[in-house]
Write a protein that binds this DNA or RNA. Structure first.
Lengths: 189, 189
DNA sequence: CAAAAATATGGAGATCATCTCCATTTTGTC
DNA sequence: GACAAAATGGAGATGATCTCCATATTTTTG
């Protein structure tokens, strides 16, 4: 499905310059407030080039955070391989909140990518969802988690954590959401 | 805090025309896709008038759904008066999902209003949050619900339900989120 | 290596939604 | 009915997004 035509040398250079700029702006927290065309100016390329590489702001955000999200997913796989499934799930969800808390821009990015109703969901979203689904399925298999609740519900709760990122008491509430989800998932013995 | 200068007769008429148009577009599902100025055209008023009455799209959405949200809050109060607190909370949350499911536009509206980071949260949001907070507090008081989880966490889960409104399996997942929240809230005996 | 083909560039300007401004009209008051 | 206050409408300013294509760079071919 991924048509990977080999990118020309200069194209690769410009693309990387754009990504570097985007990363900087991201870390500075201004990603969603910067005029989109200005990413081009800051990276020293033309606006046409910007739009050719990243047709929308969301595409750029997705590219910048592709690494972050991939890291999250890798972590899920590692946990799943080394811990009992229920613990893996708990550790992953707790760690996800940590991770979001540590990266100012991530919550807003995830919320934006998730809310993006324009056609296909971003690759990053898909991967993350798959990771969560796998973790839940394993925990169900193991018998530690009820089987009458869809893994999608956990994703929805994560949506909430991302979407609500500017609530004053975000961190504590996010932790509490995870607590509710985990306790709610425990198989009623 | 609410400075209510009595509205002139024509002003009231135009305002009502705008609201009527907005409600129609809402029900048709196109509220967030319609050019904002077009609300004026459709209502037969000038754009200046539109902007005077509703400075932003969110203000208009808030006004349209003020009634809906007020109804939700009233319902919360009635339930709280007639049922044990834990049941009132459960009934309210289940009913909220019903209500959102029945009104195509509501989820997106709530998500938008909640996500609106421009200054003060809309009156509707505030009222809804107060209602939820009260329900949770009463249930805690009654001893049916743990006291170590913030009511804000429930709001965050609702954020998720609103924000994720375009997931293919929305209804089932939303119900499951509520199940998780309710079971997670139950005081561990 | 030169020429030809393919690929990518930049940035001026088209397009489009949002919002403002104020000369005119409508309403309320005395 | 005349004066003041309130509200109107819609032309145009503003500003962000995106397109287009003549030019430049890279790759391939002979």
């Amino acid at each position: 499905m991924t048509t990977d035509k080999p990118l020309r040398a200069d194209a690769q250079r410009k693309r990387e310059a754009l990504l570097a700029t985007a990363r900087e702006v991201f870390d500075a927290g201004g990603f969603f407030d910067l005029r989109f065309d200005d990413f081009a100016r800051l990276a020293g390329v033309g606006t046409g080039t910007l739009y050719r590489h990243f047709p929308t702001r969301e595409a750029l955000a997705e590219a910048v955070y592709h690494g972050e999200v991939a890291a999250l997913c890798d972590r899920a796989h590692r946990l799943q391989a080394t811990l009992p499934a229920a613990e893996a799930l708990a550790t992953f969800l707790r760690g996800m909140v940590d991770h979001i808390a540590a990266h100012e821009g991530l919550a807003r990015t995830l919320a934006t990518l998730w809310a993006d109703r324009s056609g296909a969901p971003a690759e990053g979203s898909r991967a993350l969802e798959q990771a969560v689904t796998d973790l839940v399925a394993a925990a169900v298999q193991e018998g530690a988690v009820r089987d009458d609740v869809d893994a999608g519900a956990v994703m929805m709760a994560l949506h909430g954590i991302g979407a609500a990122h500017d609530r004053p008491n975000w961190r504590a509430e996010a932790d509490d959401v995870i607590t509710l989800v985990l306790d709610g998932l425990r198989r009623p013995q």
